[in-house]
């Protein structure tokens, strides 16, 4: 803990996983864009789903981790859990943004609009706003421990609130039926690509988390050292 961060610290444990994940990314691109069969009704546009679905999955996973991290932080007050929740919220917000963007790109040719108030879309947007607020409340706090507490409260409340948001929106939209996603059997090779992509993005999330948590803890340590230095003078 006392020694400084070296290049080896930063890349040591993660290097193997990083290399593996990079290879998986390339493979996922190949599988999704070239290898997977073209969908009969939607054509090539459907291929975006191999990225869209994993991104959405990682977002939910990330926000679940925020919830768990927030709970344990309030209970134990360990900085590590706060760093975990914070990192996960950041990654979750970025991934949710990408979910909304890739969804829009798909919706334009298929539904004919960039945006529609479809239940899932609307719920995702509200969820995105809740976690943006999570990041904002942290950055506008007067000190970092206060920000951590406030954010943890929102991390818990927000996660509990999302199912209610989803329920309300589903009930609301059933009054005005929206566009329907074409249904049908899914080719096994498509499922394989989807699961491969899911694994790739989940590992990517884990790697990002490792890096971000480490960075956060290093930032905290730096603040501490600066403070000690000031006290010393």
């Amino acid at each position: 803990m006392e020694k400084g961060l070296t290049v080896r610290d930063r890349f040591g444990g993660a290097s193997l996983l990083t290399g593996l994940n990079l290879a998986m990314m390339v493979a996922a691109l190949y599988l999704a864009l070239l290898w997977a069969p073209t969908e009969a009704e939607q054509g090539n546009v459907q291929r975006i789903f191999y990225f869209h679905v994993p991104l959405a999955w990682v977002s939910f996973l990330a926000f679940f981790v925020v919830f768990v991290g927030s709970l344990i932080y309030l209970w134990r007050r360990s900085r590590w859990w706060d760093a975990l929740a914070h990192a996960s919220a950041e990654i979750g917000v970025v991934f949710t943004t990408l979910v909304l963007v890739t969804g829009s790109i798909w919706a334009r040719p298929i539904w004919g609009v960039w945006w529609t108030w479809d239940p899932r879309l609307t719920t995702t947007t509200i969820m995105w706003l809740i976690y943006l607020a999570y990041l904002l409340v942290r950055s506008y706090a007067t000190e970092s421990s206060q920000g951590a507490r406030f954010a943890a409260v929102l991390g818990i409340v927000g996660f509990i609130d999302v199912p209610l948001v989803a329920l309300a929106i589903v009930w609301w939209r059933t009054l005005h039926p929206g566009p329907i996603i074409p249904q049908g059997g899914v080719d096994p090779s498509m499922l394989f690509v989807l699961f491969f992509s899911l694994a790739t993005f989940t590992l990517f999330y884990v790697l990002l988390m490792m890096g971000r948590v480490r960075l956060r803890l290093a930032q905290d340590r730096l603040e501490e050292l600066k403070y000690q230095r000031m006290q010393g003078d």
Partner: peptide, 24 residues
Amino acid sequence: VNTRARDFMLPILFIPVVVPVIIA
């Protein structure tokens, strides 16, 4: 009220969370 941006923090926190209530 305890943040630096107390005037606009409340709507940012409050409105997304009460969406179910507003809809209902």
